[in-house]
Design a protein around this nucleic acid. Structure first.
Lengths: 194, 194
DNA sequence: TGACCGACGTACCATCGGTACGTCAAGCGG
DNA sequence: CCGCTTGACGTACCGATGGTACGTCGGTCA
């Protein structure tokens, strides 16, 4: 059978996640109540607490979705380059920067994420999505001799933090050429490591 | 006429800020209620709302205090060097990293700060404290020809973000030599800009 | 077909941040 | 020294919030 149960289940989960994502993105986790979320999704609090463990758990799912989309953009950009690891690295970084510049992404993934889930759990989500690709890219660069041998993990933290902060700045600034200026500096910073 | 009024005023403000800071540092802004804060400070909610505009305003004062202390540590470390601008730059950066590695500082200044006040206002606090010194240090490095002429603002964002992320990692990790490893990578990153 | 279970709505609760208002003493002009 | 003002604070209370208990109804399956 088609499974009316799981179909219904998935429909309410999708509605809750989508509406919660839209509300969290525009007004932030703290300023959005469950009543508003369930009203927008067309269900009740009973449905929400049946599908999720609570407000924070719903946010966790939203964050995972956002992070996965960003990671997909990074992978797509990297794969669009040939098999030049340096080009893949820079293209992936630029894709991350552009994707995270979306205010909705920045708000959920970079501002509320660490505060709601705690930094450690937030870091685990990042490590499972975009962060992993950054570590892998740096690893292959070292393995191929493009980068001098060095500990990859700390460098990934530094570069990731730099890109996160840059994305947050780009998300709120209104200078039209800000992205290119930041990207220029970031690229120079990465080139200097070569 | 010592001013019993302003003395009393300052005493309750100090008590509230100190207790709030301790509680926010250990359990985070969201998990600490006003009732607990005023109980620890030995006053009531009436006193809190007489001295502050609300919970977020109290947090704002706590954050300003923490940020000022970090900035003081940065300035002290930089001034301990002679008038070598590069030594001042690196010493200040290292002092920032060490100060922000304190879990209490990291939690308040780096995790909850942006979420509670919003990223823009949080950035303004940083810009008024540690961030300002970073921009100034980079400015003099460019002016003295130590660094090639380049836009300072984006670079400050990138370096500041890198150090923030590094501090957060150091605040939760238990590797004993993590600080030296991260510092080594950060120093290499900064040296590469020379 | 009847027992079971997953999905969900309703009613309710404790607690939270925030407000209104009363009280009391310090300050201050006369 | 007196009386009025005002700042500092406590008490009682409010609406809203996240979370829970429980009832119901329809799909599922032996």
């Amino acid at each position: 059978m088609a499974g009316v149960r799981i179909e219904q289940r998935e429909r309410t989960r999708r509605a809750l996640v989508e509406q919660a994502r839209a509300l969290f993105a525009t007004r932030g986790y703290g300023d959005v109540g469950l009543a508003e979320i369930v009203r927008a999704a067309g269900v009740t609090k009973g449905a929400l607490y049946h599908q999720f463990e609570g407000k924070a758990d719903l946010f966790r799912v939203v964050l995972a979705e956002v992070a996965a989309e960003v990671a997909d953009a990074v992978v797509a950009a990297a794969e669009a380059q040939g098999d030049d690891p340096w080009a893949q690295f820079t293209a992936g970084s630029r894709a991350f920067l552009e994707a995270s510049t979306d205010p909705a992404v920045a708000r959920i993934a970079l501002v509320d994420g660490p505060a709601v889930l705690g930094w450690t759990e937030w870091r685990a989500v990042d490590e499972a999505t975009s962060g992993r690709h950054l570590v892998e890219a740096l690893g292959t660069l070292v393995a191929r001799g493009v980068l001098a041998p060095r500990p990859v993990a700390p460098l990934a933290h530094l570069l990731g933090g730099a890109m996160n902060e840059a994305a947050l700045w780009l998300a709120v600034t209104d200078e039209p050429d800000a992205l290119e200026r930041v990207w220029g500096e970031l690229l120079a910073m990465m080139e200097a490591l070569r």
